[in-house]
Design a protein around this nucleic acid. Structure first.
Lengths: 191, 191
DNA sequence: CTTGTTCTGTACTCGTTAGTACCGAATTAC
DNA sequence: GTAATTCGGTACTAACGAGTACAGAACAAG
C-alpha cells in the first residue's frame, strides 16, 4: 500500500553483472553501477543490501545460468562423449575473442582477494561441485560406452580442470581455433 | 658518498610477493607492506616507484622463478613425457593443500581488473609464451618418441591449459590425490 | 670534525568510495 | 481527497589508502 518500486531488480542485476564481470569486484564502484543503471544508491541498498550482498546475488545468478545450460546440454540424448564435447564447445565464445578477455566471472571472483570470502567461496564451491556432479553423472550413466578401465569420476574432474584452464587463459589467448584444438585433443580422454 | 640503504630490496620484494599473493593486488595496501617489512613508505617509493611498479617487479620475479625452474626440469635427459610429468607434478604442492589456496600469482593477477593493464598483461603474456615455448620445444625435439599423428604444438598448449586449470581450481579444491590423478590421465595425451 | 649527500620516518594532503540522513515524491487504502 | 507508507534523489559523513613535504639521521669524503 505504497509507492511501488520503479525498476526491475533483474535489470539491475544484469547491469551489475556486466560491470562486475568487466572490472572485477573491487575495481567496481557502486557509483558506476548507479550511473549505468540510473538507480540511486539508497535504492540499491534497500533492494540488495551492501556491495557484497549485491555481488553475491549477481554471482549466484551467473552460476545458475551456466548450471541451467549445462543441465540442458548434458541431458541430451546421444553419447556422453558428444554431450560433453558440445558442452565444452559452447564455452568457446566466452574464452576466445574479444568477449573472452573477461574470462569467467566465477573464476575471476575466486582470486579476488577482498570479497566476503566465506560466502563467495561457498557459492563458487557449490557451483563447481554441482557442475562436476552433472558431468560425473552423465559419464557414469554411459559408462558402458567407454573403454575398459575408464574412470568417470577422474574424467569428470579432468574436464572441470580443462574448462577452468580454458577460462583462465582466456584473458590472454583469445584464439578460437586453438581452443577448439585443445578440446578435440582432450576429448580423446573421454572415450 | 652518502647514507647507504638500510634494507635489502630482495627481502622487501619477497615480503611484498607474499602479501600480494595472499591478498591480491588491489586488496593489498602499501601500509601492510610497510608494516610487514618495517620499511617506511617514502623508502619504498624511492626504491621501487609506485604501487604498480612494485607489483610489476614482484610479478616479474615470480615469473622468472617459475621459468627458471621449468627450464631446468624440461632440460632433463630422458623422455619428454617424463620431463613434462615431472614439471606438472612439481606444481602439486602449489595447487593443493593449504598453500594451494593462494593459487597462482600470475593467474590471479590476470583477473585482477584494476592494475595497470598494459604492463601487467604484457608480463603475463610473455611468461605464458615463454613457458609454452619451452614445452613445445621439448615436445618437438622428442617427436620421434610419440605416436603417429602426435601434434607437439597443440599438446604444448593443452598442457598449458591443464596447468592453468589446476592452478585456477586450486582456490577451491586443495586435494593432492585428485590433482595427481588428473595429471596421470592427461599425461596419456603426451605419448 | 666538518660538509655534502642520500636515506628514513613522521605527519600530512588529497582523492575516492562505501554507506546513510533527510526530505520530497509517488502511490494505495479508505 | 486525504492519510499512511514506501520509494527516490541530493547531499552528506567517515574511513581508508596512495602518494609526498619536510626535517632529521646516517654515512662517505676530505
Amino acid at each position: 500500500m505504497a509507492r511501488p518500486r520503479s525498476f526491475d531488480p533483474d535489470d539491475v542485476l544484469e547491469i551489475a553483472r556486466r560491470i562486475f564481470w568487466q572490472k572485477g569486484f573491487q575495481a567496481t564502484s557502486l557509483d558506476e553501477i548507479t550511473a549505468a543503471s540510473g538507480i540511486a544508491k539508497p535504492s540499491l541498498y534497500a533492494a540488495f543490501g551492501d556491495k557484497n550482498a549485491l555481488f553475491l546475488k549477481v554471482l549466484d545468478r551467473y552460476h545458475d545460468g551456466i548450471l541451467g545450460w549445462a543441465e540442458r546440454v548434458l541431458a541430451q540424448p546421444g553419447s556422453a562423449h558428444d554431450a560433453i564435447r558440445q558442452w565444452l564447445t559452447g564455452f568457446i565464445p566466452y574464452c576466445s575473442g574479444e568477449k573472452g578477455k573477461q574470462g569467467c566471472l566465477s573464476i575471476n571472483s575466486a582470486t579476488d582477494g577482498s570479497l566476503d570470502q566465506a560466502l563467495v567461496r561457498k557459492s563458487i564451491e557449490r557451483y563447481n561441485k554441482r557442475l562436476e556432479e552433472l558431468l560425473r553423472a552423465r559419464l557414469r550413466a554411459d559408462r558402458a560406452q567407454f573403454r575398459k578401465g575408464f574412470d568417470p569420476d577422474i574424467t569428470a574432474h579432468t574436464v572441470m580442470v580443462v574448462h577452468a584452464g580454458l577460462m583462465a587463459l582466456a584473458h590472454q589467448t583469445p584464439d578460437a581455433k586453438r581452443v577448439k584444438a585443445v578440446i578435440d585433443q582432450v576429448m580423446d580422454l573421454v572415450a
